[in-house]
């Protein structure tokens, strides 16, 4: 294959990564923005989403499309419920103290991994794609499902944006993010908003995972990579800034696709991680964020 088509292929792969990553990172960013806590277990919600997607899809073994739709409905709901319960039982009781929350969510991370290992097992299992469509480009054929993932992610991101900017729920969330005390003074149940946002963030990760399982298999240790990548994206985009998160997901996803195709994937990860640590050191507000007050 010539260089041009090769680059196109790498870019397409990168866009798929970016699509999934932007959903996952948006969840992490929402939680950080509104609650001001870092959720280290975010990658495990992603993993849980993938594992439950496999479970839901295997209920409908005959019909891949039906199984996928079932996964898309069941998985986020279950993951959201798990997140909601853990928020009520743990995070609320440490009063969202940043350090205690990190330690507690590390604990949650291990518990979720253990649960997946116990009830799902150590194997990696694929979920069948809902449809098999191969789009023939002049130079190579490309999976129609992957293009669907990109489109679905765009639709979902628009949906989240609409919820945040055009609905009462979004208004309440933004009010809590901007000034917790003032929101409470206006009778916003801040406590319940936190639980809702934590569940919503986890659900976004779960949806991203459902979209990716037909491409990448479900495994109980798959959570670490999305977690680190989401950290990278959220940090580069500026902690708590949604627009920055999207731009950063695009940059990281596409450049990851290109570097991983032309160089070593391990090297790509090393460079990205080191670069981000340096961004956090020298520009803590992120490349696109504005300094926090």
């Amino acid at each position: 294959m010539a260089f041009g088509p090769h680059l196109l292929l790498a870019t397409l792969e990168g866009l798929v990564t970016a699509a999934v990553l932007s959903l996952t990172a948006l969840g992490l960013s929402l939680v950080f923005g509104v609650m001001r806590v870092v959720n280290v277990a975010h990658g495990e919600f992603f993993m849980l989403g993938a594992v439950i997607a496999w479970g839901a899809a295997s209920l409908f073994t005959g019909n891949a499309a039906l199984g996928f739709v079932a996964a898309l409905i069941i998985s986020p709901l279950v993951v959201g419920a798990v997140a909601f319960i853990s928020e009520r039982l743990v995070l609320r009781r440490v009063e969202y103290n940043p350090e205690a929350t990190i330690v507690a969510t590390i604990g949650l991370l291990y518990i979720l991994q253990q649960a997946a290992l116990t009830f799902y097992g150590p194997e990696a299992r694929p979920v069948e794609a809902p449809f098999n469509l191969r789009i023939q480009l002049p130079w190579f054929g490309y999976s129609g499902y992957k293009l669907f993932v990109i489109a679905a992610a765009i639709v979902l991101l628009l949906l989240v944006w609409l919820i945040l900017t055009r609905t009462r729920i979004g208004l309440v969330m933004r009010a809590t993010q901007i000034d917790r005390e003032m929101a409470r003074a206006f009778a916003i149940p801040v406590d319940r908003v936190y639980a809702g946002v934590f569940a919503l963030g986890a659900m976004l990760a779960a949806i991203a995972a459902v979209l990716i399982v037909p491409i990448q298999q479900a495994h109980y240790l798959m959570g670490l990579d999305p977690l680190l990548l989401s950290f990278i994206v959220v940090i580069i985009g500026g902690l708590g800034s949604l627009r920055g998160t999207l731009v950063a997901a695009l940059i990281i996803g596409v450049s990851d696709g290109i570097i991983a195709m032309f160089f070593s994937p391990t090297l790509a990860k090393m460079i990205a991680t080191a670069a981000v640590a340096l961004v956090l050191v020298f520009r803590p507000q992120g490349l696109f964020g504005t300094a926090t007050r």
Partner: peptide, 18 residues
């Protein structure tokens, strides 16, 4: 149940913090 250090460490961390 494939128990490994994961579950024990996880529960210990959460109980300690709480």
């Amino acid at each position: 149940w494939n128990f490994s250090y994961l579950g024990v460490v996880g529960v210990a961390l959460i109980l300690l913090v709480l």
